[in-house]
């Protein structure tokens, strides 16, 4: 509470400094928005183009319409809503577990000294450099074996797909979270240890709350990555009705000469909605998570 005065002083000083310099930030924002949105305009135009082609520069009036969206929802060959539901289910479950497992591993790497820690970290990174394109055959053969033993976890099941997704838990997520844990002063948990807290308590009561912003980021990134995963899902899910958005939509444009870009673009646009909603909801944690924490402290 003693810092209120200094806070105010700092704020006034900042205001004076920044008042006349704010415009360039808006300019940067504008340029960034243009850069981010321009290609999306093309996706929107393609979605509105009833001829089924990708939008071209030459626009005419008959190239705008909602036909593609109608096809998307009414054609029994594309159970779009079902794909949507599948994707949300698989991605959210897998994202939650990925973050959980990644966080646990990151905690060990950040806080516990053990033999071969540095080597394991290096090895982990090396493994990420192995081309996934080639791992697929091995993963597929392994899961076929699993299918023979436990059909409920095998090829063609969502549970099996989630399991495969969890295989990637210990990758980048672990790094991101570990990197963040490293910035949390060790004195905090050392003090807690002196006070008699167990490793579990330190993890849940001290580290996790401080890490909320980055966990939210990781969860969001994991969710986006899973929503857009095409390669693994296309191998494991072969039934048209039991597939995910990315795979189902890809089917629309994978025909050799017959492609339906319009419907595809319409589907892809709608697929981005959950990501945006989720981001809106998580923004508070990502951006203001620690600020509110520090006021309490």
């Amino acid at each position: 509470m003693t810092s209120v005065g200094t806070h105010r002083a700092v704020k006034q000083k900042k205001r004076k400094l920044k008042r006349d310099r704010l415009w360039w930030r808006y300019l940067v924002a504008l340029i960034a928005i243009l850069f981010a949105l321009a290609p999306l305009v093309w996706i929107i135009l393609s979605a509105l183009n009833p001829t089924g082609g990708l939008a071209t520069v030459s626009l005419s009036k008959d190239m705008l319409g909602l036909d593609n969206f109608r096809t998307l929802f009414n054609n029994p060959d594309y159970p779009y809503l079902r794909w949507y539901k599948n994707s949300l289910m698989v991605s959210s479950i897998a994202a939650v577990f990925q973050v959980m497992i990644g966080t646990m591993s990151a905690y060990a790497f950040s806080r516990i000294k053990f033999k071969g820690r540095r080597m394991s970290l290096g090895g982990l990174l090396l493994l990420q450099m192995f081309p996934q394109l080639l791992s697929l055959v091995a993963i597929f053969l392994f899961m076929s074996k699993v299918s023979d033993i436990v059909p409920a976890l095998g090829i063609g099941t969502f549970a099996g797909l989630i399991l495969v997704y969890l295989g990637g838990s210990m990758g980048y997520n672990t790094y991101l979270i570990k990197g963040f844990f490293d910035t949390i002063p060790r004195e905090l948990d050392e003090a807690a240890t002196v006070d008699g807290a167990s490793a579990n308590q330190i993890f849940f009561k001290i580290i996790m709350p401080l890490a909320a912003p980055i966990l939210a980021v990781v969860a969001l990134l994991a969710f986006i990555g899973l929503m857009n995963d095409f390669v693994l899902a296309s191998i494991f899910l072969t039934k048209t009705e039991d597939t995910t958005l990315a795979v189902g939509l890809h089917g629309l444009v994978s025909g050799k000469y017959e492609t339906n870009w319009g419907v595809f673009a319409a589907g892809a646009l709608l697929a981005a909605i959950p990501v945006v909603i989720l981001f809106q909801l998580l923004q508070r944690f990502i951006v203001e998570g620690l600020a509110s924490g520090s006021v309490k402290g």
């Binding site: 960034a32 928005i33 981010a36 949105l37 290609p39 999306l40 996706i43 986006i224 857009n228 095409f230 958005l245 990315a246 939509l249 890809h250 595809f264 673009a265 892809a268 646009l269 697929a271 981005a272 990501v275 945006v276 981001f279 809106q280 923004q283 951006v287």
Partner: peptide, 14 residues
């Protein structure tokens, strides 16, 4: 911020 993450929210191959 929401606008700026849009490029990442689309399926990459599209």
């Amino acid at each position: 911020r929401s606008i700026l993450i849009l490029p990442y929210a689309m399926p990459g191959f599209l």
